[in-house]
């Protein structure tokens, strides 16, 4: 039985293309003192992604390479990693876009390393669930779509895909575990935007904390790396505007007093 895609037409191919790219992949197993790099050569086609290449390494060269992925189309957020020192989703990062040099692949930073490219997301969810679960919002992803009669508009689940790239890119998360962090604060801002059943007041109070909205130092790196346009830094600044104006109002006797 032939493969569903002829090798010559497979734009994601990892063999038979003649163009070889070196990968320096971070390796770590439980018990290791610290990670080290291991090099692999992978042949790439014009649209081979980093995830294609890593799965090819695992399949053809080294079955001990541990990585995590699911959907292959930037929806699930599980293949977040650092490629050439920038946080990306490996499934939508094409190798040919990275220049000709060796491709450095690390797990996302500031999380507990489980093995190779896999980190434990427990810290992420600890912060994320501190606020409230995210809600739904109007979709601006497909403006051309026709809305069926009787439906006010399409909605999609909250933009955040919980990949953890923002925590990896944030300089403050790099040193201080107490900071609530970009993802959690962006979720808080969503609750305030669209409270539904949630208690927006207590969420706002939660963010008015030296370890929450006021801890951000405006590097905006979370927003720069976010693959889903959540704009966590912008969300934090809007939280602060709300908190600052409430503070000013409380001076004049109206609004919320802390």
């Amino acid at each position: 039985m032939s493969s569903p895609v002829e090798p010559a037409n497979d734009t994601h191919a990892t063999s038979g293309t003649g163009r070889s790219v070196r990968f320096r992949v971070s390796r770590f197993k439980q018990g290791d003192r610290k990670p080290h790099y291991q090099e692999y050569a992978v042949e790439v086609a014009p649209e081979t992604t980093v995830l294609d290449a890593l799965t090819a390494i695992r399949r053809d060269q080294d079955p001990t390479l541990i990585l995590r992925h699911s959907c292959y189309h930037a929806s699930c957020g599980t293949c977040g990693m650092r490629v050439n020192d920038t946080e990306v989703l490996a499934c939508v990062t094409e190798v040919t876009e990275l220049g000709g040099g060796p491709v450095k692949v690390d797990p996302i930073a500031n999380q507990r390393l489980v093995a190779d490219l896999v980190t434990d997301m427990v810290d992420f969810y600890d912060k994320f669930t501190a606020v409230d679960q995210p809600l739904v919002r109007g979709s601006d992803a497909i403006p051309a779509a026709t809305v069926p009669p009787g439906v006010p508009g399409f909605t999609r689940f909250e933009n955040c895909i919980e990949c953890g790239l923002c925590l990896s890119a944030c300089p403050i998360v790099a040193t201080d575990p107490r900071y609530l962090g970009p993802a959690g604060l962006a979720a808080a801002q969503r609750v305030l935007e669209e409270p539904r059943e949630a208690d927006a007041f207590s969420v706002l109070r939660l963010t008015d904390d030296p370890q929450a909205a006021w801890r951000c130092h405006l590097a905006f790196e979370c927003t720069a790396v976010c693959p889903s346009n959540v704009d966590p830094a912008g969300a934090i600044m809007f939280l602060r505007r709300r908190l600052a104006s409430d503070r000013v109002k409380s001076i004049f006797g109206s609004g919320w007093r802390p």
Binding site: R112, P171, T175, E221
Partner: peptide, 26 residues
């Protein structure tokens, strides 16, 4: 402890792969 692998203050000064915001920060 939950997160023993933080980058530390190196995460402040390491501008490789970062954008303008990190430069402004450091």
């Amino acid at each position: 402890r939950v997160s023993p692998r933080r980058r530390g203050a190196w995460g402040w000064v390491d501008v490789r792969g970062r954008r303008l915001g990190q430069w402004a920060f450091i």
